[in-house]
Nucleic acid binder design. Structure first.
Lengths: 220, 220
DNA sequence: TAATTAAGTTAGATTAATCTAACAAATAAA
DNA sequence: TTTATTTGTTAGATTAATCTAACTTAATTA
């Protein structure tokens, strides 16, 4: 069985490795920074995770997940996203509050709990941020790929997920009145700085940055 | 903030201290045995908990909870029993399965989670074992006191709680078809060994031991 | 009350996860 | 290609929770 800490390392590695395609590995400093620990600490942990057959790792080399490691990471992600869905749907937590609590709940050990929870929630495919929830067998519903930046002037779309799940971003969205399902129309793309003039739910008009437009997953 | 382990010590102390009235304190060995650790380990922890102002304790003396310690213990108990109720009512866990998972869930840190959960469950007063759930302010619904042994031959009652929450006992109850609300009638008290001849829901007849009859809370 | 037993403590060690400081390897730049 | 910089590792220490073995205090009993 994995410790709380080991689980967090696997989850972090999975996230970093699945961020950009074609880069299925991470560096020590990168991981340490992500996890908020010193590189020395991470080195020790990778040695241990290697012993347990969960990561591939050589001295001074990059780190990647083994198949078993990946399976474990998916299980944790599954729990995290199911709990987020529970908090959002059943307990009325807001978008930006669910993550922190789910970080704790994801470490509860009980297969039965997870499957019962999934059933209780009606087998959801996406969490409140629009991220796909892995199935018990490790399958993952296809993630949504288009971002707001992909739209041309005049095109409309609906928000289906957030790419950036930081509290800062989510709170900003809340302030703008944007959530999953909100309709956004691109009125103009400002060529000077790439920013977008958008309308939110066909009402309020706003100018948003490239960074912003890169952080929203949408569907036409 | 308290560690997982510290919380478990406080909870154990609370349970032992509230078991028999007029004995609001516990011994080192007793606590260690209860928690499954060695007495030496418990001694160290009591020193630490004393430093934190959570227990009263002197070298070679008994241990008891301070007011702050008691408040903390009640918070944990509250969470434990709310989660048990959730698992039983919403996720269809059976009587004997809820405890183990709730042991983990009770350590999740989020005031909001607890109050939202309580609201979601409709402010229950008792958990699936019939034990009272402490309120946010520390109030506790009055516990039920009468046990099956208190009945005379010919009297009837309904099961309202279990005194012994061991898996062994709960599974035995399940086999007998007894749960909260089940009607039990005492047909005869066998004076030889104190055992009882009972009928369960006015159907099946059974002989049960003194130990058994002492472990069931009932109401007429 | 002195001896025996039960209960509780101390000292020293271990494991997991972390740190700092010093060092080594790999990569980038001049 | 030598130097500088970035990246990663090692060694040694720390903290929390645990253990064993030896010791001390308190309680019981003969």
């Amino acid at each position: 069985m994995l410790s709380y800490t080991e689980e967090n390392y696997l989850k972090a590695l999975f996230k970093i490795c699945s961020q950009c395609e074609g880069r299925p590995e991470a560096g020590t400093n990168e991981m340490a920074a992500y996890l908020g620990v010193k590189p020395a600490t991470a080195t020790d942990m990778f040695k241990k995770l290697k012993e347990k057959g969960l990561v591939d790792y050589e001295r001074y080399g990059k780190i990647s997940l083994t198949e078993i490691g990946k399976k474990n990471a998916l299980t944790i992600l599954r729990k995290h996203r199911l709990w987020e869905t529970f908090l959002y749907q059943k307990l009325d937590f807001s978008w930006d509050e669910v993550h922190e609590v789910a970080e704790q709940l994801e470490h509860i050990q009980s297969e039965k709990l997870v499957s019962k929870l999934e059933d209780f929630l009606g087998y959801p495919e996406f969490d409140p941020h629009g991220d796909p929830i892995p199935k018990a067998n490790g399958d993952m519903p296809p993630a949504v790929k288009m971002i707001l930046s992909d739209l041309k002037a005049g095109e409309s779309c609906r928000v289906v997920a957030v790419k950036d799940t930081s509290v800062l971003f989510l709170q900003y969205l809340k302030r703008l009145g944007i959530s999953i399902g909100t309709k956004i129309t691109v009125i103009e793309k400002v060529s000077f700085d790439g920013s977008l003039q958008i309308s939110i739910d066909e009402q309020e008009t706003r100018n948003v940055s490239v960074k912003f437009a890169d952080s929203l997953f949408v569907a036409k």
